[in-house]
């Protein structure tokens, strides 16, 4: 179980890192195609609020899991 927890740690950290370019690229595409106020508000909330929370928590959690902090 402890090995699985550690291996999944890599998955969580990779997810946390991977989300950043995905979300930023999608936001640039959508705002570039249609620079409306609606688009700006939506993507600002996602990039400023949601994405940092998801990325930071998944990366930190993944690193902790990889180091075996959740083994006990």
């Amino acid at each position: 179980m402890s090995v699985i927890k550690k291996l999944f740690g890599i998955v969580w950290a990779a997810m946390g890192l991977g989300i950043i370019p995905l979300v930023v690229m999608r936001a640039m595409q959508e705002i570039g195609a249609k620079p409306t106020e609606e688009n700006w508000i939506f993507w600002s909330i996602v990039i400023v609020v949601l994405m940092p929370i998801i990325s930071f928590s998944l990366i930190t959690f993944g690193v902790f899991a990889l180091k075996g902090e959740y083994d006990s």
Binding site: S57, L58, F61, F64
Partner: peptide, 13 residues
């Protein structure tokens, strides 16, 4: 403190 932060993260995620 790492011991508490890791609990905050598990509570959230």
């Amino acid at each position: 403190k790492k011991d508490n932060l890791k609990m905050v993260l598990i509570a959230l995620l």
